[in-house]
Structure formats: C-alpha cells, structure tokens
Design a protein around this nucleic acid. Structure first.
Lengths: 203, 203
DNA sequence: GAGCAACCGGAGGTGCCCTCCAGATCGCCT
DNA sequence: AGGCGATCTGGAGGGCACCTCCGGTTGCTC
C-alpha cells in the first residue's frame, strides 16, 4: 500500500490528473468535509457540489457514490489512527494503550455524524469503498489487543472483531447524544470494567 | 396510562373512530409492520400505503410522520418488554435477570432494522413520538439494575442511562451484521464481564 | 496551434416526502 | 328511511434528492 504524497483513495483517480480535474477534486473533497462535519454524512451531495462551485455531474465523476466520497474524507482520520496505534504499541501499558486507542477511534469517528453507522455496515459489505477503511483499523486494533492479552491485562477470549464492533457502536451512541460529550468515555470505561461488582454471580 | 383493549398510541386517535377509519388504520399498521420488518424502518411510506390498498393521504392522516408510525408498530414489542421486566424482577438472580432483559431488548429492537437508531436519537428529542417509548423502557431497566446493584452483583457506579444507550448501540451493531446472530450476545457478555483479565492494570 | 482525450455541467427521469382539498362516506337524528 | 353534517378518503402536485447521460468545453501533447 503505497501512501505517497498524493491521495490514492482506491477508487478515486490518483495518477496524473488534468489540472482542472484535480482542482475540482480538491474543492469537492474540502466542501464534503465541511458539509459532512456540519450536517452529517447524509448531507445533500447536490449541496456539496453547489458549494464547491462545481456541477453535480463532476461530483459523480470523481466520486461514483456517497461511500466513495466518505472514504476519501475519512482517509486522513484513518491515517492519524494508524499512526497513533503504532505509537501506542511501543509504550509500557498495553491495556491502557488499547483503551486509549479505542477512545481515539471513537473521537475521530464522531467528527462526522453517520460515519460510525457507515463503517459498521461496511464491515460486512465487501463492495463498499468504506470496507477498505476497516481492514487496517482492525489490524491496528488487533496488534494492540494481542499485546494487552499477552500481558494478561485483558481476557484471552475477547475477539478483535467484537471489540471493534462494540467500539463502533459506542461511537454511534456518542454521536446521538452530542450534548453529553463524556458519554463515549463512560461507555468505554464500562466496556473495560464490565458491569460486575464484588459479589458478582458467575455467568 | 390506561391501556384498554383499544390501541391508544399517544398521538394516533383512540376514541371512537369511524368504522372505515379504523379499518384503514389497522391495514396500515399491519402493512407497516410487514414492510418495516422486511425493508427496515426507512421503507417507503408510499409503498406501505399502496400495499395497504389505501391512499397516501390516508396514511398521513393517521400517522402524521414516520416516527408516529414506528411508535405504533413498536408498541406491542414495548409491552412485551415491560411484561418481561416485571417477570424477571421477581426472580432470584438479579444480575442474570438484568442481562437477560437487556438481551430481550436487543432482540425485540432487532426485529425492525432502524428502530435502534431511531430510539437512540429519540432519547434526546422530546418532540418525537418515539421518545415515549424510551421512558418506560428506561424505568423498567432502572428497576432491574437497582436490584442487581443492591445484591452487589453489579458495580454501583453504573448508570441506567449509560447502560440503555450501550444496549441500544449493541442492538444497532447486531442489526448491521445479520449473518452473525450471536454477535449481540457476545457483545452483551463483553459488557457484563468487561475486558479485564487476571493481571489487569488499574484504570 | 491543432487535434483529441479527458473533463465539465446541468437537464432530465425516477422516487420519495408531505400537503391540501374536492368529493365520497359514515352514522346520528328525526 | 332518509337527510345532513362531521369525518374520512385519495391522489394530484410542489419540492427535494439521487444518479445518468451526453453535447460542449478545456487542457495537454506533439
């Protein structure tokens, strides 16, 4: 996966683009970012095109569907998350690292309302461009989880798929309650510690 | 809250309805139930009306918006959940009862794709008819949680709001992965037990 | 600067949402 | 029984968004 200086969002054109095309591509991407952040990922694509000063046909030329656009927008958040995972993988507190990274996932996902949902459904839909986001995320998470499990801090039965799915679910819950920004943290803490108290029955 | 033999879905007419009106109301409700189950709660309302053999205007007369229709459809599941909670509240295993009830919530929610999401956003939107679903659910959950906490099986800091939100989130995750029906159970189990293993660091 | 491939953009077909109101229908009342 | 008003019906219609398609335009190459 060659991540050169030029965006290569697996489906959007990367190699030598005509100057006007690149200009429009960038405008669209910027406008989509702003629009998704403000109105969520179900913002009107015609609005995005209009705001970008570009015809709707041009938008669809560059991004054949909404998912492709979301993928492109989500790219940099993805890169940041992968970088963070590498950073955390070198620290001394595997469990803490895992939880902190999951928190970062939730935060980044929450930047655009609707991304969590889209990522979740994309998990099982190979055809979606967004599915390509999930694989690297999953692998980054898997490394952190494995380390935490080796250290004994996390139970061995926990699977990375379940954990990522739950994290996405938490992100989704958090974005439904924008007036309670600490919700995500509390839910993650809940996940970490579980419900069980001192006198827990055995399940 | 008088639950007589006649449906009284708080917004849909209850008192003496003309015979033709009641007939259409019932047809619409049945068709909506089927349609939501098959296509999710974002099914076309015009389809619902068409399938019910009724004009679109009639649908909107009875259910001023999609939420009202969802509310009416979700009523019986809601009643079942409340009944189940009363049943479980009398058993001997408070923690087990709580978890089982949460499982039932996830199951019923999952019958209609989209309900989990709608319920979650309705939590913070008083104007929505669906918000009226949440309050009784929350209270039923609160009773079960309180009992589990009194018995010491569940940590005292856990709040019912967080727990319900997380449960909804799990329901949502589960409905995104229809090919893995056990996902919800695993995620609930994860919530119950937490990630922590034998040598957990303190968080 | 000529030619052509790449690109632009918006008209247009489709589908859905929701409103509105003229006409059909019901059921009470005499 | 039959009339009459309140109630209900249904679909036309305006608005919006999606996405496709293709005539016209632009940038790049030689």
């Amino acid at each position: 996966m060659a991540t050169s200086t030029v965006r290569t969002p697996a489906g959007a054109p990367a190699r030598s683009m005509r100057a006007d095309a690149r200009r429009n591509y960038d405008r669209l991407l910027n406008e989509a970012r702003a629009s998704f952040a403000e109105h969520g990922t179900d913002a009107s694509l015609e609005d995005v095109a209009r705001q970008a000063g570009v015809g709707i046909g041009t938008l669809y030329r560059h991004f054949p569907n909404r998912q492709a656009l979301m993928y492109a927008v989500f790219q940099e958040a993805l890169a940041a998350l992968l970088a963070r995972s590498r950073e955390l993988a070198e620290g001394d507190h595997p469990c803490h690292a895992l939880v902190e990274w999951l928190g970062a996932v939730v935060t980044h996902t929450g930047e655009y309302r609707g991304v969590a949902q889209a990522l979740m459904s994309a998990t099982r839909d190979e055809t979606s461009a967004l599915a390509r986001c999930n694989t690297p995320l999953r692998e980054a998470g898997a490394r952190l989880l494995a380390r935490a499990q080796e250290s004994g801090a996390v139970r061995a039965e926990v699977s990375i798929d379940d954990l990522m799915q739950l994290t996405n679910a938490i992100a989704l819950a958090a974005e439904q309650a924008p007036d309670d920004p600490a919700l995500a943290d509390r839910l993650l803490a809940l996940t970490l510690q579980g419900l069980k108290g001192p006198a827990a029955e055995q399940g």
